[in-house]
Amino acid sequence: MEMTLLKVHGSMNTFYMFEGEEHEDYAQLAIQLSSIDQDIDGILVILPSTIAHAKMRVFNTDGSEASMCGNGLRCVARFVCERDGVTEAVIETMKASLHVKKEETLNDKIETYAVEISPISFALNSLPMSYLSNSEWLHKPLPFISEEIPFSAVSVPNPHLIGIVPAALQKDTSHQQKWAHYFNEENNYFSDGVNVSYVTPIENGIFVRTYERGVGFTNACGTAMTASALISCLAGLVPYGDVTVYNPGGMVKCAVSKTEDTIRLQLTGNATYLSVVKFNWSSSGENSCILSTEPLDEQTDYKEFIEQVTTLSSQFV
């Protein structure tokens, strides 16, 4: 079956994106595409919805399905808004229907979208995480890892374990690699695995590096950046409001607001189209191949933008 795919990225979190039908085996397609193109972090499938403008499903490179993807949602938001001729829409995801909208471009050239990140839970059983008899874990060391690193657990709705670390642990990723790999194999703490982010405060914001469940180290993870901004606000590292979040793939803005018991999160950043790809898909994978690739020119503008904004984070990447 011949398919037309868009290769896209949000903060260099890269995917193939396309409109599809619910019945197809997209887990197998994700595995096939990632074996052919190792630059991608998964696929974004845009489906019809009875309750929203569209439905998004996200499949990682190992075929597992993610409940949400903030960077991917921005790309889906752009596609749906342009397709339907609107500037705001609602996208159905696994756990919630989320509001998305077109924003002013980051530098007069880069397509920019803001997306709601929800639901939010600090309950360990929402990740799930099991550690002694605790029901929450916020800004406290996990002694079996380190007495020096405060960790927090939160689902948004993807599960995240977030550590606040010194710059040395950003430059040398072996510590993060060791524990993230451990937590995403059979272990006593995270039965379904977990996204592990290390966060370091820097001038005017935070730097976040994420080991993504089902993927490994990634240029950026939208829900991880948003969860990291939230934890940084709760810990008093940055003020509530718009938090600038740098990552190996670029920069985003995460809006964090808290009133009494209500927390609202919004992620704003690029939604960049890289190329239009013709792909032949066979269920067996025997004849699956890329037939043609038509590059687009949007990445040039994104690279110029990143060169301007990543001076502060260049020490880590």
Results as ranks from 00 to 15, higher is better:
residue 315 Q to K: 08
residue 274 L to D: 07
residue 135 S to R: 14
residue 101 K to T: 04
residue 50 T to R: 14
residue 103 E to F: 02
residue 164 I to L: 14
residue 176 Q to P: 05
residue 188 N to A: 15
residue 92 E to P: 04
residue 119 P to L: 02
residue 267 L to W: 01
residue 23 H to F: 11
residue 138 L to Y: 04
residue 297 D to V: 05
residue 203 E to Q: 13
residue 209 R to C: 13
residue 250 G to A: 03
residue 165 V to A: 12
residue 88 E to K: 01
residue 220 A to R: 03
residue 235 A to T: 07
residue 267 L to Q: 03
residue 45 V to K: 09
residue 19 E to N: 07
residue 246 Y to M: 13
residue 264 R to M: 14
residue 315 Q to H: 00
residue 271 A to I: 07
residue 268 T to L: 03
residue 39 D to H: 08
residue 316 F to C: 05
residue 221 C to K: 11
residue 247 N to T: 06
residue 39 D to K: 10
residue 183 F to A: 09
residue 255 A to R: 15
residue 82 E to Y: 00
residue 31 I to H: 07
residue 274 L to S: 05
residue 57 R to S: 08
residue 293 T to R: 09
residue 296 L to M: 01
residue 265 L to S: 09
residue 292 S to E: 12
residue 239 P to Y: 07
residue 265 L to Y: 07
residue 121 S to T: 04
residue 22 E to N: 10
residue 40 I to K: 01
residue 122 F to P: 04
residue 264 R to Y: 14
residue 188 N to T: 13
residue 279 F to V: 15
residue 147 E to K: 14
residue 82 E to P: 02
residue 115 V to M: 00
residue 60 N to T: 04
residue 262 T to C: 13
residue 166 P to E: 11
residue 273 Y to R: 08
residue 199 V to D: 05
residue 134 N to P: 04
residue 153 A to V: 07
residue 154 V to T: 08
residue 4 T to P: 03
residue 83 R to S: 00
residue 261 D to C: 15
residue 83 R to W: 00
residue 154 V to S: 07
residue 34 S to A: 11
residue 22 E to K: 08
residue 74 R to M: 01
residue 230 L to E: 05
residue 195 N to P: 06
residue 220 A to F: 00
residue 39 D to M: 10
residue 286 E to G: 11
residue 86 V to T: 02
residue 109 K to M: 12
residue 235 A to L: 06
residue 223 T to M: 00
residue 54 A to P: 01
residue 178 K to T: 15
residue 120 I to P: 07
residue 212 E to Q: 13
residue 306 I to N: 13
residue 5 L to V: 10
residue 250 G to R: 10
residue 304 E to P: 04
residue 257 S to R: 11
residue 215 V to S: 09
residue 19 E to D: 07
residue 143 P to A: 12
residue 108 D to E: 13
residue 85 G to L: 00
residue 283 S to L: 12
residue 288 S to L: 07
residue 78 R to P: 01
residue 286 E to M: 11
residue 26 Y to E: 04
residue 252 V to S: 06
residue 1 M to S: 00
residue 219 N to Y: 06
residue 180 A to W: 10
residue 39 D to L: 10
residue 281 W to S: 03
residue 308 Q to I: 13
residue 317 V to H: 13
residue 106 L to A: 04
residue 119 P to Q: 03
residue 189 Y to I: 10
residue 150 P to V: 08
residue 180 A to S: 14
residue 146 S to K: 05
residue 19 E to L: 04
